Simulated assay, not measured.
Amino acid sequence: MAGSGYKDYFQVLGVERSADADAIKRAFRKLARQYHPDVNPGDKSAEARFKEISEAYEVLSDPDKRQRYEQFGQYWSQAGAGGMGGGAPGAGFDVDFGRYGNFDDFINDLLGRFGGPAGAAGFPRGAQATRSPINLDAEASVSIGFLEAFRGTERTLSVNDERVQVRIPAGVRTGSRLRLKGKGNLQPGTGRRGDLYLNLSVADHPVWRLDGDQLRADLPVSLDELALGGTVPVMTPDGEAKMTIPPGTPPGRSLRLRNKGWPGRSGRGDLLFSLVLELPGQWSDEERRLLEQLRVLRSEDPRRSWLTSASL
């Protein structure tokens, strides 16, 4: 806004001529909020007033410009090689309001351009300060059970005095991160709100353990089931199922149920059972008799190859 004639910039900002830099900044912030075009859409007089107070702040916030203004009045801009390129106060001052996401971004940028960092906060004159945007995002930790993670579940959280219902999808793991858009911290006076990020942890399970997309578990089996084979009932996270053990299966071998594992983006993984020989704590007389018969009838020495290898 090019000026003509003398303007009392102190009067424009409503401060005493003895006002210090902090008082001038406070006055500018107050008036800028009042007359900002976003607050007064379509009001040309408010926009003109806004540019006038911005021009006043441009001069009074800079110690060198203020000194020449107080000394030379309306001719201050011609009283030195500095100033605003030798033109009238405010010459070339133009505000593109659309480039700012909110009012505080605009004010902070303007304070930096017109004397904020320059000379007042240890920055060299003419330098630009880089400002990081305000981070309004928030984080919270949520613990869920193993089967809740397998099937999916819901949680009700209290965020900034607001109850938020959260749907946790099936297949999450410890370290999974969920984003709730627009449920983070609120910036007073602007209506801006960040996002809420939930960091999930999944409790261990006494039977199931996760290995990639596969579920694993130990399956206790008897001596006769390993030797003779058969179909045995097993429990899965989906419920009961049947598994066939081939005859002569050694203990420690893993048997697989396809598509019964952990839910993932590409579908279900597999469920693997490691066969664990479970011997009874006490044999009945009949069982001992049969085992004695087995000892007599057994045709193969289980240590034959082991003894051969050990003697090499």
Results as ranks from 00 to 15, higher is better:
residue 254 S to A: 14
residue 301 D to P: 10
residue 179 R to S: 04
residue 300 E to Y: 11
residue 252 G to K: 07
residue 78 Q to L: 14
residue 9 Y to Q: 05
residue 292 E to P: 00
residue 264 G to M: 04
residue 159 V to K: 05
residue 69 Y to N: 08
residue 84 M to H: 13
residue 234 V to F: 03
residue 225 E to T: 15
residue 51 K to M: 14
residue 117 P to G: 12
residue 27 A to R: 01
residue 31 L to C: 01
residue 93 F to A: 13
residue 75 Y to S: 13
residue 228 L to I: 04
residue 102 N to E: 09
residue 166 V to Q: 11
residue 159 V to E: 05
residue 10 F to R: 06
residue 10 F to Y: 15
residue 91 A to S: 15
residue 20 D to I: 02
residue 100 Y to N: 11
residue 300 E to C: 00
residue 2 A to L: 13
residue 90 G to Y: 04
residue 264 G to F: 04
residue 292 E to T: 15
residue 242 K to M: 12
residue 112 G to W: 01
residue 66 R to H: 02
residue 307 L to Y: 12
residue 31 L to G: 05
residue 110 L to Y: 14
residue 32 A to D: 08
residue 244 T to V: 07
residue 84 M to L: 09
residue 47 E to H: 09
residue 246 P to W: 08
residue 110 L to S: 05
residue 265 R to K: 15
residue 40 N to V: 03
residue 102 N to R: 09
residue 18 S to V: 01
residue 256 R to S: 06
residue 231 T to A: 11
residue 262 W to A: 03
residue 10 F to N: 05
residue 305 S to F: 05
residue 160 N to R: 02
residue 50 F to T: 00
residue 31 L to M: 13
residue 260 K to M: 14
residue 297 L to T: 04
residue 161 D to R: 14
residue 285 D to M: 08
residue 232 V to A: 06
residue 249 T to A: 11
residue 24 I to R: 14
residue 100 Y to G: 09
residue 294 L to F: 12
residue 151 R to G: 10
residue 225 E to C: 02
residue 113 R to Q: 12
residue 128 Q to A: 08
residue 7 K to Y: 12
residue 90 G to V: 06
residue 38 D to E: 11
residue 29 R to M: 10
residue 62 D to T: 01
residue 95 V to H: 05
residue 97 F to A: 11
residue 245 I to V: 10
residue 101 G to V: 06
residue 185 N to K: 14
residue 134 I to R: 14
residue 130 T to V: 14
residue 8 D to K: 10
residue 283 W to G: 02
residue 306 W to G: 01
residue 143 S to F: 00
residue 295 R to K: 13
residue 165 Q to T: 15
residue 4 S to W: 15
residue 242 K to Y: 01
residue 59 V to W: 06
residue 132 S to R: 11
residue 243 M to L: 15
residue 241 A to H: 13
residue 149 A to Q: 04
residue 86 G to W: 00
residue 122 G to A: 09
residue 151 R to Y: 13
residue 58 E to I: 01
residue 113 R to W: 07
residue 269 G to D: 02
residue 261 G to D: 03
residue 58 E to T: 07
residue 258 R to T: 14
residue 94 D to P: 00
residue 310 A to T: 06
residue 246 P to N: 13
residue 109 D to C: 03
residue 123 F to M: 08
residue 14 G to D: 07
residue 142 V to C: 07
residue 162 E to D: 08
residue 224 D to H: 12
residue 105 D to S: 08
residue 106 F to G: 04
residue 268 R to T: 00
residue 257 L to W: 03
residue 285 D to C: 00
residue 265 R to S: 13
residue 186 L to G: 04
residue 42 G to R: 11
